[in-house]
């Protein structure tokens, strides 16, 4: 379970957000460009310093600015899949999936086991030796998902993971995400700006507007307007 209270002054507004995501639940974070979605993920991941924050993951405090607690990015065990997938183009698919495990100094036989497991379950086993730079957008996103899940994260975050994908690849990545979030029973945050994504993948949705929570609930009940600044009227 993720519990986050975040505050950060940005250029045009202040991000001020309370977020709770249960284990095995997919929370869809929505909002216009610049509403603070990616900033939220970056603060939780530890890539961006908040002005004030308290972040608890499965009962473990990973950040509390008031007490000077700030676990380093590499020690947070958060799987983060970005929009452009960021698979390392000079490495093979197999090396990409093994990257996080090697960085965490996991034993070689365990690395081989986990890499084999995830490549098989994410359907990329036949691409094992292919250089990641030569993959299609959908294949890259699957590799990014396998790589993020291989480290056995306590939280999975995906920033606009479907934007660059065709309809078939989008559906594949959505199905795989739902399947493994349920199976691993970890919280998951998916940032998207498409309403269809939220209804198809999200258990709950949170709409941000200028850094504030505008609405939260079941995606199918999401209003089509913005009650805060009317930016979606």
């Amino acid at each position: 379970m993720l519990e986050a209270v975040l505050q950060k002054k940005l250029r045009d507004y202040s991000l001020d957000l309370n977020l709770t995501v249960n284990s095995g639940e997919i929370m869809v974070l929505m909002g216009m460009n610049g509403s603070g979605k990616s900033t939220t993920l970056n603060i939780i991941a530890g890539l961006l310093e908040p002005d004030r924050a308290s972040i608890t993951l499965n009962g473990e405090l990973i950040c509390r600015t008031d007490d000077g607690i700030d676990v380093a990015v590499e020690d947070r065990k958060i799987g983060y899949v970005l929009q452009n997938s960021a698979v390392f183009p000079h490495m093979s698919v197999k090396e990409n999936v093994a990257y996080g495990l090697k960085a965490r100094h996991i034993a070689a036989d365990e690395i081989a086991r986990r890499v084999g497991y995830w490549m098989e379950h994410i359907n990329i086993a036949d691409l094992a030796e292919v250089k990641a730079g030569n993959l299609s957008g959908g294949q890259k996103q699957r590799v990014a998902l396998a790589r993020a899940l291989a480290i056995e994260p306590s939280l999975l975050m995906m920033d606009e993971p479907f934007t660059a994908l065709d309809a078939e690849s989008t559906q594949t990545v959505k199905d795989l995400t739902i399947k493994f979030i349920r199976k691993l029973s970890i919280p998951c945050i998916v940032v998207t700006h498409r309403l269809t994504d939220s209804t198809e993948i999200g258990d709950r949705a949170c709409v941000l507007c200028h850094g504030k929570k505008e609405w939260e609930g079941v995606p199918t009940e999401m209003p089509g307007f913005c009650s805060v600044c009317h930016c979606r009227d």
């Binding site: 890539l47 590499e74 958060i78 929009q83 390392f88 990257y99 960085a103 993020a148 480290i151």
Partner: peptide, 15 residues
């Protein structure tokens, strides 16, 4: 170089 590569590497556990 897109900062996303380095950010991803860090979240995966690399120094």
């Amino acid at each position: 170089i897109d900062p996303a590569y380095e950010q991803t590497s860090r979240t995966l556990g690399a120094s």
